[in-house]
Design a protein around this nucleic acid. Structure first.
Lengths: 349, 349
DNA sequence: GCTCACGTGTGTAACGATACACCGCTAGGC
DNA sequence: GCCTAGCGGTGTATCGTTACACACGTGAGC
């Protein structure tokens, strides 16, 4: 180890004294090198090297400047989930693109789902927040709002004073649902969780208004409308809830659906991962896609094209970038993101 | 918008004045609520709400406290690459696990590869750094070292004063190479980039000492030893360098290798993604694995088991966690991570 | 010769919060 | 009735840096 653990922090004032110049000259050496003569600059740098000065203290600097040049990202209850979900990772990449471009850091905030999150959010050294889609009752959105710093929510919920970047999930679900459910007698839905407790379950005639994740609620509303348009009553539509966004779990739950009496002949999922699990389960059950069962996904990720999956195309990366720009105050606070339906062979003509 | 953009920042002193209490009482209201009476606390909170106070300023707080409770992660030249590489994402998840547990934030630093990186690293409001594997000549490791803050490098290079968390890449490459090259006449290697300019190329008798990425260099040394042990001269071993860690590019370059005169009959890759590209190319060229060509990967990710790939197993997630613990000063600075070879059907018996 | 601009150096006053020490009051033990 | 403990409140100094205003000397322009 170069510097012993016991050594105190070296300050700019000590460097200045050692170099025989004023504190301001030392400060300018780091912040506006052209402002000082070559001679003074090299004296300062030599003194800094001798004393083991590690550069201006970032906390003091941002206090004085009033900006941390860092954006905070809140990724939901279990931080590590974020890194397991490919769509969440794309979203982060979009934020990273903008941050890197603007010279901003990007802080991923540690969220545990407990009460201690609130002070952590307040205490985060960031200029603004980006909140990954969450539930209406999630206390972190209130905590973010309470900081009075600029913030953007991705997906939902809409929070007064915060921006919102999202696609129109209801319209997109209706559009893809209309295709997936066309000609079907018994449509079903593979859904993301309905509330923060994240339990897997299968039900019928689901109470949509009680769904706490706005993104999921809007998608269910769109799917419901699509089902009703083809003459199916909502009480007859199965909704299979997957606790995690994961092909394996969707496969398991889809296997249950498909081996029941009166199995579904059309399944609309809420992600391509789920849809690929559904397709595997369908193949395992000996069904032909789309004739025996039509399948649709969501996101249009890499797997969708390979599987020939009808899906909703959206760019999480672009949405991440839009959130970052909005949080930096460079674009309007709220923006509707674009989407489209990609029709492939997993649904009927 | 709740508070107009022109409004000045509200300070604790203003809140205290409005509430008719001292500044310290207001401060304790936020930091040690039990220290103040219910009456005073509610007066302070009411005043804060009226004034739109967003909580104690984090920069001021960390200046005073001498800690930011945040770890910085440096992920190599293009920040967004980090999110495209599944192994890098696992590594981040491992860091995130520890940070979330300890209540630390995790700042991903914006690195562009240009000169402006150095001040950005110095200016990062973090208590310590974790550096993702990089090249010997990468200026960011020097910049990190110059901050005098605790720092850990993952993979390499070894930097004086910084910790190092890594597997023994040389030994692991030797071990898996011995299996992949067993019985082969013309072994080849699909390699990660050899220098920071990241060009794809195919060469023979590669100069290993000039390889600037220590992880890659050590792996090549191990593979070389394995090849020489089976009686093959290094000058006869083809090395195909892939600019990016990506199945598609490995497939392209492997197709070139396999359609040449005297094609390789064993290919050791440096990631499972590369190996899966190699396998696809081999199938496309009508080869049987492992009889016509043996293939080995690296990392033992999800794809490896599916493909029956012989590979080096390591947990990037555990290594990320080890880096985080070390950067927080809770474990020794440097640690050797564990690895093993998983033998499957992609190599000869 | 006077003015003015410019390059370089300096002192002072914040930035917003918290650590620490201290103070007055009340309640309880003897 | 006195001493002590503890609760709730306060004033002051300080964390390390940078913004700002100013001071001084030099050389150009007229």
């Amino acid at each position: 180890m170069e510097s012993p653990a016991g050594s105190k922090r070296v300050t700019l004032a000590q460097v200045a004294e050692r170099a025989g110049v004023s504190v301001m000259t030392a400060s300018y050496t780091y912040n506006r090198p052209s402002r000082v003569s070559d001679q003074a600059r090299s004296k300062v740098l030599a003194a800094a090297a001798q004393l083991g000065y590690g550069g201006p203290d970032p906390s003091a600097r941002s206090l004085r400047r009033g900006s941390t040049r860092t954006l905070g990202v809140v990724m939901g209850e279990h931080l590590s989930y974020a890194f397991d979900d490919p769509q969440a990772v794309s979203f982060l990449a979009g934020i990273a693109d903008i941050c890197a471009d603007r010279g901003y850091g990007m802080t991923i905030l540690p969220i545990t789902g407990a009460a201690e999150d609130v002070p952590r959010i307040q205490g985060a050294a960031v200029d603004g927040f980006i909140v990954w889609t969450t539930s209406d009752d999630d206390p972190v959105s209130a905590a973010v709002q309470a900081t009075k710093r600029p913030a953007v929510v991705h997906g939902g919920p809409a929070v007064p004073g915060l921006g919102l970047v999202s696609i129109d999930n209801r319209a997109a679900a209706y559009a893809v649902g209309a295709i997936a459910f066309a000609g079907a007698k018994r449509p079903a839905i593979v859904s993301q969780p309905l509330s923060r407790d994240r339990i897997s379950t299968i039900m019928r005639g689901t109470d949509i208004t009680g769904v706490l994740f706005p993104v999921t609620r809007h998608r269910l509303e769109g799917y419901r409308q699509a089902a009703e348009d083809t003459g199916i009553a909502w009480r007859d539509v199965l909704v299979a809830v997957c606790a995690r966004n994961d092909a394996a779990e969707a496969e398991r739950i889809a296997a249950t659906l498909l081996t029941a009496a009166e199995p579904p002949d059309a399944i609309a999922a809420m992600s391509d991962e789920q849809a690929s699990g559904v397709i595997r389960a369908a193949h395992a059950a000996g069904r032909v896609i789309p004739d025996d069962v039509a399948v649709s996904g969501w996101d249009d990720g890499a797997a969708a094209a390979q599987l020939g999956l009808t899906t909703v195309a959206q760019s999480l990366r672009d949405q991440g970038a839009a959130c970052a720009r909005a949080a930096l105050g460079q674009t309007p606070n709220s923006q509707a993101a674009s989407w489209s339906v990609v029709r492939r062979d997993s649904t009927r003509r």
